[in-house]
Design a protein around this nucleic acid. Structure first.
Lengths: 96, 96
DNA sequence: TAAGTATATTAGTAATTACTTAAATACTGA
DNA sequence: TCAGTATTTAAGTAATTACTAATATACTTA
């Protein structure tokens, strides 16, 4: 960990945002278009959502494909899924 | 996860720093005094280290005890240990 | 081709972070 | 009590983040 601390901190910075966590939660269930994601997150503007997606994509965490006018995002780096799963387990289950 | 996203993002923000990750790594091996931690992290000033410790303590992640002139820190919230362990597994092991 | 829809990008700004430097507090041993 | 050591706290600042508003791009359909 020692030598990787800086790199891992970078990853965690990307995860450390309410909306980016929600995006990953949704995409964990399966790929979704930008507007599909937007429907699940009514509190964020289209522009802000797009900026969060761009960041996750730039970090290699998400992949995307275009089809017609819509863009579908999916999780590319499956390691984050397991990180999410531990977070869920400890901070979301039942009486936490 | 959805309703907890904000809270989890707060936690991840605290973890998302190179030096705080190193502190947690060291304390994972066992409690250490501030100066003991400082020896393991020669690139940070004593003041900065103390501020990182204060943040981790404020979040309930660390506990501490005073004895004489020195302060010994230890991990209080064992959930973060498992988070660290997943990070280690995926981002530190072998050919990652 | 024009108008509408989906998404991305840009520029500007307020809030937050991480640091440095300096000083404060608390303990110890001569 | 004084000097030294360990640690914390406070103030100031530069860098980073997350947003809004506006505009741009790309596609579709009438």
């Amino acid at each position: 960990m020692e030598r990787r601390a800086k790199q891992i901190a970078e990853l965690l910075k990307v995860l450390a945002n309410e909306y980016r966590l929600l995006i990953l939660c949704e995409l964990n269930k399966g790929p979704k278009t930008v507007s599909g994601l937007g429907e699940k997150m009514p509190n964020i503007t289209q522009s802000a959502l797009s900026q969060h997606l761009a960041l996750l994509k730039a970090q290699g965490i998400l992949d995307f494909s275009k089809s017609g006018q819509s863009v579908t995002y999916s999780i590319a780096d499956h390691r984050v899924e397991e990180v999410m799963s531990v977070l869920k387990k400890h901070y979301c289950d039942k009486e936490n």
